[in-house]
Design a protein around this nucleic acid. Structure first.
Lengths: 227, 227
DNA sequence: CTCCATATCAACATCATGTTAACTGAACAA
DNA sequence: TTGTTCAGTTAACATGATGTTGATATGGAG
């Protein structure tokens, strides 16, 4: 197994508390951790250390995370770096802009260590595999989380956010039945309470756009993606 | 699907009202609930019952939640347990200390039942995910709980929920005779009251779909799975 | 043979999901 | 501003699979 100590992680956040918290948890796992309190500092450190992963707070005084991300992407040799945003849950659409700016992932605050660590592992694993694309191929579909696009027979299908995330979730484990509870948790979040029919309607829209053959209902249990 | 009754939850809070409130809501969902009014009691009960999830109030007289958490983490065999904090403080970063103590999540008071339940489900799901074997092979059958499918000679057989759960139960211990009572409890749950014939009919449907050779009737006792 | 648990079947009830259309609010353009 | 479009959600209702029941048949143990 790859040792975590081979990985450098740069944290950029204006809150010392959070930096310390994240730093503590990541170091505990054996990562080499660098921190920066401002966007400027972050860029400087990044250029110097060439980290494998950058965790960026979106909201910072001065240069914000989005801008840091764009600047980092412009640095030669920095294109392979994985960049993830830290965002408050309320900033609902921030990650979309984030993806456009070149982010690989976004992580909601408040941050839970287990979630953080598993996300980071996943991100690093992905980046480690060389130039593997962020797209997933499942049967006739290609789901590209980076561009938020789905391709079917070469045709580009653009999906709204919720639909995309729902599809994305289901396709993340083809064959697995996702319970409605689980879907609500993962796509809508803990606190959001939406009606029973909301999922169905989204499923229906997906089926309309993609065809009937991909999403299968398992009555009384949930939905699953098939290929 | 897995019944909630398989999950033990320990609540530790010095306020009887809150304990009762939480206990009521969790029991209603079918969890096995244990309560403790102090940190000491919590640790004692935890060691004895080995719950799957511990909900800890942070602020308690005597040993506080943080300390309980640390002590629990030190108990052998307790490392897989999910520990979540209940905290009144919302926006500050007091939970950071909690995470350092080994907590998996924190839940803000005031607690809304819906949020609590969905968080708990998510936590238990995550904890169970690691070592869960998804498919079971029994003789000519393969039962895949993840995709809710049964395979026989490579052919895919799709079963309705109750039938699948019934088969799943019987096949979980091939050879063992399950009494009708036991079947009712595990598949239908405690609260549901259904007539005598219901089980027979489901057995019949299973035999229709799978063949006669798998489920054997033990008159006066129950049913068992054979292979 | 007789008794009683189980089997079987068809009628019935129920519940999860499908479907449609309408409503809200955000983003955007004229 | 107003109007327009779209994502997301919801209510109301339709539909059909699924679950349940009771009447009746069957079959094995004693």
């Amino acid at each position: 197994m790859m040792n975590n100590s081979e990985h450098k992680i740069l944290l950029v956040d204006d809150e010392p508390d959070i930096l310390e918290f994240l730093s503590y948890n990541l170091k505990k796992e054996g990562y080499q951790v660098y921190t920066a309190l401002t966007g400027e500092e972050g860029i400087t450190v990044a250029k110097k250390e060439m980290p494998n992963l950058v965790l960026l707070d979106v909201m910072m005084p001065g240069i914000d995370g989005m801008e840091v991300c764009r600047e980092l992407r412009a640095v030669p040799g920095m294109d392979g770096v994985v960049i993830a945003f830290l965002t408050a849950r309320s900033e609902d659409y921030s990650h979309i802009a984030g993806f456009e700016a070149g982010a690989d992932d976004y992580i909601n605050k408040p941050i839970k260590p287990r979630v953080l660590l598993s996300r980071i592992k996943a991100l690093l694993r992905r980046s480690g595999n060389g130039n593997e694309s962020t797209a997933v191929d499942v049967g006739k579909l290609r789901i590209d989380r980076e561009s938020y696009l789905v391709f079917k027979d070469g045709a580009e299908i653009s999906l709204p956010r919720k639909e995309f995330e729902l599809l994305s979730l289901l396709a993340s484990k083809p064959g697995k039945v996702f319970a409605r509870d689980e879907i609500l948790n993962k796509v809508w979040g803990d606190e959001v309470v939406v009606g029973d029919r909301t999922i169905d309607v989204h499923i229906r829209k997906l089926r309309e756009k993609l065809g009937e053959e991909f999403i299968r209902t398992v009555k009384g249990v949930g939905y699953k993606f098939e290929f």
